[in-house]
Simulated assay, not measured.
Amino acid sequence: MKSGRTGWMLGLVYLCFGAGIVLSAERPAFIGAANVSPHNEYRLWYRNYDSPPIRALVSLAFEKTPEYGSFSIIRSPEMAQGRVVRELEQPVSTLVDIANVATSDKREGNLLAIPLPIDGGLLGFRVCVVLQESLPMFEGIKSVSDLQEAGIRVGQGTHWPDTDILEANGVKVITHSRYEILFRMLENHRFECFARGVSEVLFDLEMQGNMNLAIEPDLLIAYPMPSYFFVSRRDHETAQRLQLGMERAINDGSFGKYLDHFYGRAMKALDLGERKMLVLNNPYLTEESLAIGRHSLMNLQRRINNLSSSDEADSDFEP
């Protein structure tokens, strides 16, 4: 394993230990031969299913836990983030079993969270997707007050935790319940900045294929906001399989390789070390998740340095 990848992986492991999460990589006591299904189907929220990194991580976690049986990952029906959270809150859902979304104290209270940030905490680091013609509006912005004075409105999902975080910090937010519609709203000048996570923005623009869209080059909006897998509070077996699989992947190095493969390119391409960071407060986290998010913020520069010193990610990674 190359030194850059070692630094990335150990950074995340330290992040988990530092927040009080115990990595145990042990087979859970409740699993016995009589309880193992020969084949399990897991319905993954369609937005996650359509995201290659997220679907790859679910597969990686399940492949690391063969004692739970074989598996298939199925695309859920299309539904907004608020709807998928409500579905998982039901005693039994026929639509979805797993969703990866940003965490909040409310979500951790109503659902079972697997408290390991799937992207190393990068979701709370956001850049602006803008129209090419709007780029001059962002010149000279160095603070949230500058953002306000420039009249810049930020587009976000109605039920995304980011919306409440941005509004709590005095940022003007325009919302819609559907992710896909937000790009059309940006194109129609309903807002100036569609704030997207560092770990997702390059994939977003590749999918959109719109040459009029650009990534604003100078700003990095940052707040502690880990992104977890969530399942129903009654679905302990799926929760334990996901957590055990991710812990094993961290311990054997395959999670570090996963992070480097899927997110290393974005961290380099976006020149995060050269951007002006606007740090916002997140008042909607549990104590544990706040510790994880703060640790991510403090270690961003170290992660950038680790990736900058490493070679390009291997092209033969297979989750």
Score class of each variant (00 low, 15 high):
Ser134His: 09
Ala113Glu: 07
Gly157Cys: 10
Val127Trp: 03
Val144His: 02
Lys142Ile: 07
Gln156Phe: 00
Ala150Pro: 02
Asp119Val: 14
Val127Arg: 01
Arg153Leu: 09
Trp160Glu: 00
Leu166Met: 08
Ser145Thr: 14
Met137Thr: 07
Leu131Phe: 11
Gln148Met: 01
Arg153Ala: 15
Glu149Trp: 05
Cys128Gly: 15
Ser145Ile: 15
Pro136Ala: 04
Pro136Ile: 13
Val144Ile: 15
Gln132His: 12
Ser143Thr: 11
Ala150Tyr: 05
Gln132Ile: 15
Asp162Tyr: 05
Ser143Asn: 07
Ile114Gln: 11
Ile141Asp: 06
Gly121Lys: 01
Leu147Cys: 08
Gly120Phe: 11
Leu147Asp: 00
Ile114Pro: 13
Asp164His: 01
Gln132Tyr: 10
Leu116Trp: 02
Glu149Ile: 12
Trp160Pro: 04
Phe138Cys: 08
Thr158Ala: 12
Val130Tyr: 01
Pro161Leu: 06
Leu123Thr: 15
Ala113Lys: 08
Leu112Gln: 09
Asp162Gln: 14
Leu112Ser: 13
His159Lys: 04
His159Trp: 06
Gly120Asn: 01
Ile118His: 03
Val154Ile: 10
Gly140Thr: 11
Leu123Lys: 07
Lys142Asp: 13
Gln156Gly: 10
Arg126Asn: 11
Gly155Met: 08
Leu166Glu: 02
Asp162Ile: 04
Asp146Gln: 09
Pro161Thr: 06
Leu147Tyr: 01
Pro136Trp: 01
Ile152Glu: 02
Gly151Trp: 08
Ala150Leu: 12
Glu139Gly: 10
Gly155Glu: 01
Gly124Met: 03
Thr158Met: 09
Pro117Leu: 14
Asp119Ile: 15
Glu133Tyr: 10
Pro161Tyr: 00
Pro161Asn: 05
Gly151Val: 12
Phe138Gly: 08
Leu112Val: 15
Gly140Asp: 11
Ile141Tyr: 04
Cys128Ala: 15
Met137Asn: 07
Ser134Lys: 15
Pro117Gln: 04
Ile165Pro: 08
Leu122Thr: 02
Val144Arg: 08
Ile152His: 06
Pro136Gly: 04
Val154His: 00
Trp160Leu: 09
Ile118Gln: 12
Val144Met: 06
Ser134Cys: 11
Phe138Arg: 00
Gln156His: 02
Gln132Trp: 04
Asp164Gln: 03
Leu116Arg: 01
Leu112Lys: 13
Ser145Phe: 09
